[in-house]
Amino acid sequence: MLDDRARMEAAKKEKVEQILAEFQLQEEDLKKVMRRMQKEMDRGLRLETHEEASVKMLPTYVRSTPEGSEVGDFLSLDLGGTNFRVMLVKVGEGEEGQWSVKTKHQMYSIPEDAMTGTAEMLFDYISECISDFLDKHQMKHKKLPLGFTFSFPVRHEDIDKGILLNWTKGFKASGAEGNNVVGLLRDAIKRRGDFEMDVVAMVNDTVATMISCYYEDHQCEVGMIVGTGCNACYMEEMQNVELVEGDEGRMCVNTEWGAFGDSGELDEFLLEYDRLVDESSANPGQQLYEKLIGGKYMGELVRLVLLRLVDENLLFHGEASEQLRTRGAFETRFVSQVESDTGDRKQIYNILSTLGLRPSTTDCDIVRRACESVSTRAAHMCSAGLAGVINRMRESRSEDVMRITVGVDGSVYKLHPSFKERFHASVRRLTPSCEITFIESEEGSGRGAALVSAVACKKACMLGQ
């Protein structure tokens, strides 16, 4: 009897593995994704193909990295998701002549009506938060230079001027797309009239992360975010950046690689679950690469896999709870928690219980395998993109072996128990001629924006502006 049951459990697990095998990517698959990513990057950089390229390769006008001589107080704003952060950054000489960066910050959550109302409502709310922060720190009387981390696709015309191309991540505030974001912020500050600010720089969160990590390690020339969304930036040779005049030196390019796949480059790798996630998203047909990796989508992918296993009578005796059938019910943090389970399955059992399920031991094991399959594919897909960037940098610099540091931020990278190990191992397999160091950014977005502002202020002083 026991043997029969054991055989049935083994057969069930084997069927589960057959279904989950769809998520496995072979090294040849990853090399294919990497080569296609490089081709799209090239198209994004070139003037004649930029418009139709899915990977936009947006110039950021960040050319210099901090040298350690900029000092002063800077205000930093960070808008990239449902939370908005205001930070005071003091850049100065530390002990023994070292450079020191001290920060104080406060988080504000953005109400739904500000995210989806008008641009005026959104930026009025942001300036209200700045006003509140300055009151708390008794700094209303000071006109501070301000660095703005704005983590949406922007076409820069200068370091302090950028046109919002399109909202992502659930934002829909009308009247912002096609307009200068810094102008919208300046107008809102003017409307309030109770404080003055000098907006000197606007950067993407990947750029802010790279600059913040450069402060720790001067070989950091790539910034990457794996959180709600997924994106990367890197220092490109100016001669390859056709959208900006000049051939000397390097400029940081914001790849906006989340949109890779929007022209069909990933079609052969998309599964039924991916198509369902895409169809029910706020932007169907867009940001397809990001939807395979980002935390906004990972939990939902797992939920759809679990429903398939229920329908195949391989999980929960073929019956799903009402909660499990509800879109968004299986949160991405559950994926991390399930994979963090120590082996007694308590954590998995508790999560499934909150979803109205009474799982068996085998159910718990199957749910864990589903989570591992989805998150491992995410790590491997992400590795193909980064390997594409790094191999490109090595080739354009004609280096036999390139040493490089990548600064990384984002909740999936930082909080998932195995993502970074799987990701690092896969990147290294795909970049055999590179020695890569990964560092995690601390308060990256805010500190990085302030350091970019410090560079901009120093330049302005040198130019006598």
Score class of each variant (00 low, 15 high):
Q287T: 04
E196H: 07
G464M: 09
A6T: 09
A10Q: 10
L386Y: 02
Y214G: 15
R394P: 04
S131R: 10
F133W: 02
R36V: 08
M393Q: 10
K90F: 11
V181I: 03
I348T: 13
Y214F: 15
G318S: 08
I163L: 02
V302N: 03
V33N: 04
W99R: 15
K31R: 11
V408Q: 05
F152E: 02
T332H: 00
K136E: 11
E290S: 04
I439H: 09
T49W: 09
R191N: 04
V455L: 15
P359L: 09
C364K: 13
V374Q: 06
M107I: 08
T206A: 01
D132K: 12
V412K: 06
Q24V: 12
T326D: 14
N180A: 00
C220N: 08
D158S: 11
A208L: 00
G223V: 00
V86A: 03
C371Q: 04
G68R: 15
G175L: 01
G294R: 04
E120T: 09
S263M: 06
T60K: 04
C233V: 05
E17V: 10
T437V: 11
G68S: 14
A201F: 00
T206W: 06
L122N: 00
R377A: 00
R358D: 08
K169Q: 04
A208D: 00
D311I: 15
M8Q: 13
V302F: 05
H218Y: 13
E242H: 05
P359D: 04
F150Y: 05
R85M: 02
Q286I: 07
H156W: 01
E27T: 13
G261K: 00
M34Y: 06
I404C: 08
S321T: 14
L45V: 03
S212E: 03
K31Q: 08
L164R: 03
L352E: 05
K90R: 14
V199P: 00
K140W: 04
G223T: 07
M393L: 13
G295F: 02
E216A: 14
M34K: 11
A384N: 00
D409A: 06
W257I: 07
T168H: 02
I163Y: 04
D262F: 11
L324H: 05
Q323G: 13
Q106S: 11
R5W: 13
E112R: 09
E216M: 14
E96A: 12
G117V: 05
V452D: 01
G193Y: 08
V374E: 01
R63A: 11
Y61M: 02
T103C: 07
V226F: 02
V452G: 03
A320C: 11
H156L: 04
L288Q: 13
V62L: 15
C457D: 15
M139L: 07
L315D: 01
A188S: 09
L292V: 10
L58D: 03
V241S: 06
F423Q: 04
V427K: 01
M139A: 04
L324K: 02
M37D: 00
S453F: 00
P417N: 14
K420F: 05
K90G: 12
M202N: 00
G44K: 01
E256L: 01
Q287C: 15
T437M: 11
Y215Q: 01
V226C: 05
R369T: 12
K31V: 10
G72N: 08
D262M: 14
E9G: 10
S353H: 05
K169G: 02
V455Q: 15
M37P: 03
N350Y: 10
H218Q: 07
Y61S: 05
K13G: 12
A450G: 07
S453V: 06
I189Q: 05
L122K: 02
L306G: 05
S373Y: 08
F84D: 04
R422K: 15
G407N: 06
G183N: 09
R429N: 12
S109Y: 12
R394I: 09
M402H: 11
S375I: 01
T206N: 00
L307F: 06
D187C: 00
E177I: 15
R403V: 07
G97D: 12
I439T: 06
I348D: 08
E395K: 06
Q286P: 07
R155C: 04
H424W: 09
D205M: 02
V154Q: 03
Q347D: 13
C371Y: 05
E443S: 07
